[in-house]
Computed example of a mutant assay.
Amino acid sequence: MIRKGREIADKLGEKLTAVLVGYNVENKAEELIHYGADHVIVVEMKIRHIYDKTIYKGAFKFSK
């Protein structure tokens, strides 16, 4: 998805920001930069085995 996002961002002349949510994932941010993201927002969450859309929605509110 990063590569497709990169294509779209380039066509629009915009920056591409990736959001990485998970537990112990900060080390993966550079990988997203390598694949084409200009910026990466990392949201570390210890609750890695529970999917609750309200938790993720809250993470995106803080990233604005």
Rank of each mutant, 00 (worst) to 15 (best):
K53F: 10
I55M: 13
I8G: 02
Y56N: 10
E44H: 07
L12I: 03
I2N: 02
D38A: 06
I41F: 11
G5T: 06
I8R: 03
E7M: 15
R48Y: 08
G22H: 02
E30M: 11
V25R: 02
K28H: 07
V42W: 01
K4G: 12
N27L: 06
G22C: 00
T54K: 15
D10N: 13
T17L: 14
G13H: 15
H49I: 07
K11W: 07
D52L: 10
E14K: 15
A29M: 00
Y51P: 07
V42D: 04
R6T: 07
M45Y: 11
V43Q: 00
I50Q: 12
K53C: 06
G5R: 05
N24K: 03
I55F: 14
R3E: 15
E44M: 06
L20C: 05
K53I: 07
T54H: 13
H34I: 11
R3Q: 15
I50A: 08
D52M: 10
Y23D: 09
R3G: 14
Y56C: 05
L32E: 09
H34W: 11
L20I: 03
V40F: 00
E31C: 03
N24H: 05
K4S: 13
E30R: 11
V19W: 03
Y35G: 00
I50R: 08
I2L: 10
G13K: 14
H49D: 13
G22A: 01
D10V: 06
H39V: 09
I41W: 05
I33D: 11
I8W: 03
V42R: 00
L32P: 09
Y51I: 12
I50E: 13
V42N: 01
K28Y: 09
V43S: 00
Y56W: 08
A9C: 06
I41H: 09
N24R: 05
H49T: 09
V25C: 00
L12A: 11
V19Y: 08
R48Q: 04
E44I: 07
T17D: 06
A18W: 08
L32T: 07
G13T: 14
E31Y: 10
R6M: 06
A9Q: 04
D38G: 02
E31V: 05
N24F: 01
N27A: 08
H34A: 12
I47R: 12
T17G: 02
M45S: 12
E30I: 04
Y56S: 07
Y35N: 12
V21A: 04
I41C: 08
A18P: 07
V25S: 02
H49S: 06
N27W: 04
L32K: 07
V43N: 01
L20R: 04
G5C: 05
G22W: 00
A18M: 10
Y35S: 04
Y56R: 03
E7Y: 15
V40W: 02
I41A: 10
Y51Q: 11
I8M: 02
G22K: 01
L12Q: 08
R48W: 06
